[in-house]
C-alpha cells in the first residue's frame, strides 16, 4: 500500500523532525499563546511566522551549499540550526 512512496530512513527522520517541531510549537502555543512582536526582521512576526521563515531560509541555505560548493551538508545544517535559533529568539 505505501511501498510506492519509497520511504527511506533519512527522509523518515527528516519528516519526523518536522512533525515533532510542529507538535512542540502547537503545544507551546496552546500552553502559552504567543504575542506578535517586532524583532530584527522588517515585519512584526509571531513564533509560528519566525519558524516558517527559518525553515524556508534553511532550505535555501542547503540549496546554496549544494549548488555552489562541494562542502559537506552538515555545515549547512549547523548553520541552519544556529540561524533558526537566532531567528526564533531575536527575529
Amino acid at each position: 500500500m505505501i511501498a510506492w512512496m519509497q520511504w527511506t530512513l533519512p527522509t523518515a527522520i527528516f519528516f519526523a523532525t518536522i512533525a515533532a517541531i510542529l507538535l512542540v510549537m502547537t503545544v507551546f502555543e496552546v500552553v502559552k499563546p504567543c504575542v506578535e512582536r517586532k524583532g530584527f526582521l522588517p515585519i512584526a512576526t509571531t513564533r509560528g511566522d519566525r519558524l516558517f521563515i527559518g525553515l524556508l531560509s534553511s532550505a535555501y541555505i542547503h540549496l546554496l551549499f549544494l549548488g555552489l560548493t562541494e562542502a559537506s551538508l552538515w555545515i549547512a545544517l549547523a548553520i541552519s540550526v544556529v540561524w533558526l535559533g537566532v531567528l526564533l529568539r531575536w527575529g
Partner: peptide
C-alpha cells in the same frame, strides 16, 4: 485558532 494563519497559507 491555533495555527490558523499558517494553515491558511
Amino acid at each position: 485558532f491555533v495555527g490558523d494563519k499558517h494553515l491558511f497559507f
